[in-house]
């Protein structure tokens, strides 16, 4: 048996889009291994998430529901994933390298005594052997690795695996037993979640991203938001802008922030530090607007505009609006 288990991500009872990227990996890996893939949905009140997961072509959707799983805690979720993987003779456990996957999957791997290939951007198959391409050194090198343990744990970079479409079929849904957590679970308590509410698309999923740098200062939102609105874009920021408090930390694009690869990325007042480039170099079309003609961002930009952003960005917003009638 060589089957793949997708660890789904659910929030407020619904399936998160991150899951669909892991499913794309699972389809490729299961085909190479000659096996099937299942999707594991964990939580409390996740029937809607399970129903949605059942449209994604899995052999089975497994649901682990329990009141104790209502809020995500790695200490409680990892034993559930590990137990299902062991009991079902799973060969590859995969999730997406979102905040959730990055927190959970290494814990799962340790519990399974398995190797963990993180944040992979490609799957290379030779017969039934799986090799993983993963970025290192802020995306300045790519390593090709394999995992040498009977069970492998993998996280995929969301922007590198297109979201899986519905298959047209309905997968059977099966409830699974909830594994008992270890002592660690008794010593961690969820206190609160301070959610940044936004009506914009999520950064990692947006087709267009407009990012601002420190140069915007207190006018960050005043300059960036209208352009993002007219483009239907998600808003991102450089580390410097986040550190200075001009933008919230979860908007940070970069090696250690969000990794994005939209159709269009507009960098406003961003100099282009290596750590920032690592988070957006995969974008299809990159536009940079910066006063400094020597800024490194221009080296990766398809279209560079050397201009004062406080006049250029409002003008750009106006002209895009006008061009659309």
């Amino acid at each position: 048996m060589a089957d793949v288990l997708v660890v789904a991500e659910a929030a407020e009872g619904k399936l998160k889009k991150t899951t669909h990227s892991a499913v794309t990996f699972a389809r490729q890996a299961a085909a190479a291994l000659g096996g099937t893939y299942s999707i594991l949905v964990i939580g409390s009140g996740v029937d809607a998430a399970a129903t949605e997961a059942a449209t994604l072509g899995a052999a089975k959707v497994l649901v682990a529901q329990d009141g104790s799983l209502g809020v995500y805690l790695a200490e409680r979720y990892a034993p559930v994933v590990a137990e299902v993987a062991k009991a079902r003779g799973i060969a590859v456990v995969v999730g997406t390298a979102s905040g959730y996957g990055k927190d959970l999957l290494p814990r799962v791997a340790a519990r399974l005594d398995a190797g963990y290939a993180s944040d992979i951007t490609g799957l290379v198959t030779e017969g039934s052997s799986l090799k993983y391409r993963r970025p290192m050194f802020a995306g300045n090198a790519f390593g090709l690795c394999s995992v040498a343990t009977p069970i492998q744990v993998v996280s995929v970079r969301q922007s590198a695996f297109a979201a899986a479409d519905a298959s047209g079929a309905q997968s059977p849904v099966e409830q699974v037993a909830v594994a008992r957590p270890g002592a660690a679970a008794e010593r961690v308590e969820f206190v609160s979640f301070d959610q940044v509410k936004s009506t914009r698309p999520e950064l990692a999923e947006a087709k267009v991203v407009v990012s601002g740098g420190r140069a915007l200062k207190e006018k960050f939102n005043q300059v960036i938001d209208p352009l993002a609105d007219v483009l239907g874009a998600a808003v991102g920021a450089s580390r410097a802008a986040c550190d200075a408090g001009y933008a919230p930390g979860d908007l940070q694009v970069g090696q250690t922030g969000k990794i994005v690869a939209p159709q269009l990325y507009v960098a406003v007042g961003i100099s282009g530090a290596i750590q920032h480039l690592a988070g957006m170099k995969g974008s299809k079309v990159i536009v940079a607007i910066n006063k400094d003609a020597d800024a490194p961002i221009f080296q990766v930009a398809d279209y560079g505009l050397v201009a004062d952003l406080f006049t250029a960005v409002p003008e750009l917003t106006k002209q895009i609006q006008a061009s659309r009638g």
């Binding site: 090709l144 394999s146 002209q319």
Partner: peptide, 30 residues
């Protein structure tokens, strides 16, 4: 070691971009 590396490669190169002359030029090209 549970994870073994078989080789390394540089990132795919991006083709060199251009500087546009003004906002109107940028909008037209986009």
């Amino acid at each position: 070691l549970k994870v073994q590396y078989h080789g390394f490669e540089p990132p795919p190169a991006r083709k060199a971009g251009i500087k546009v002359k003004d906002v109107a030029d940028l909008v037209a090209r986009l």
